[in-house]
Nucleic acid binder design. Structure first.
Lengths: 191, 191
DNA sequence: CGGGTCATCTTGTCAATGACTAGATATGGT
DNA sequence: ACCATATCTAGTCATTGACAAGATGACCCG
């Protein structure tokens, strides 16, 4: 099962599933989550126009796989930073910036099958880390739910605004630096 | 605002531009910002398959018009609530919930022509209200920019999370009520 | 070695779509 | 009454997503 550069000219690709996913991520990065065609992915991977559908069923299947892989990577990132809620918030934004193609699909339910088992498992894993972080943020107290939502919202909102270029000139300079100064206000409130 | 039962069978529609826009908003509400075709809009409006293109140029043109109209309505909503920053935050979320179809297009630059004059004017108008509100939130102080971004992020993020159904069970019950409790934490910090 | 089995990939096809062209029809100004 | 122009229709083409049927070769068992 070597993944390698085997079979440049062979009938069987060797790792077409991976190649199509990579092509999809590239295409998403260039023109958004739906600015490409299955046939374009096939061309990028150098295979026939129907080959991608064999591995993913249909276009939605490709996006489902992207979302599933994205949530898995996302959960990994969050877990590495989960000691401190503020760190998790920074990791949230950093993931969105560093893995834009994944992020842009993950939170767009109309694009993929949200009930896909693999996607659901990964999403729940990420959700568990967020919930745990939130519990550390607001220990006890009636405002726990609100605090949780506020923290999640500020990270998600900043990431979204940055990704779609809505931030006027604020994103100039180091994104992470700006993100930190914003997140601090909510994650490290002098209550 | 029935534009008219005029000309049910006439060659000219009378207000096709409006009819296509309404059809687009309806379609977006049902299946997302790109889950429809120009020809479907034509069918909904009862005109030929090429009629919509005459008024909007192409599919991107329809989305551009939706975004422009959306930003105009958005600016109106914000202006009505601009006295108090917290009220503006609530209006922000309420607009997203009440005018979901508009909102889902407005903050997705890859879908439309962001440099469209009409869209740009409306967007700037909304931006000005937000900036003004933010100034009231954090009068002076070096953290003004961070506070502004945090407030914007929390409203935008909550709206986005609610719209794509990411909030676990928090959205159960009155959305506005939950939104208020979240926004309060950032907009009315007991500093 | 040899044959069978099956996932992988290709070729062929079809309806739907976006975009374009040319033409038909109404509207309003003069 | 005439005509310039905006509005809408009919026709066309390349591209696309989805599907069906067939070709290829990897792997297994003897």
């Amino acid at each position: 099962m070597e993944v390698g550069q085997i079979s440049q000219s062979s009938y069987h690709h060797g790792n077409l599933r991976r190649a199509v996913l990579d092509a999809a991520l590239e295409a998403i990065g260039e023109s958004g989550p739906s600015g490409w065609s299955l046939r374009e992915l096939a061309r990028r991977a150098g295979v026939s126009h129907a080959a991608p559908a064999h591995h993913f069923g249909d276009k939605t299947g490709v996006l489902t796989a992207v979302a599933a892989e994205g949530f898995a990577l996302f959960a990994d990132s969050l877990e590495r930073a989960a000691d401190d809620p503020y760190g998790a918030g920074v990791a949230y934004v950093r993931f969105a910036v560093d893995h834009r193609a994944y992020f842009e699909v993950m939170f767009r339910p109309e694009l993929y099958r949200t009930d896909d088992p693999e996607a659901a498992v990964a999403r729940d894993r990420a959700g568990a880390v967020l919930a745990e972080s939130a519990r550390k943020l607001a220990p006890g107290g009636g405002s726990e739910r609100a605090t949780t939502l506020a923290a999640w919202s500020v990270a998600h909102g900043f990431a979204g605004l940055w990704l779609n270029g809505a931030l006027p000139e604020s994103a100039e300079g180091n994104v992470e630096e700006v993100a930190r100064s914003v997140l601090e206000l909510v994650f490290r409130r002098d209550r």
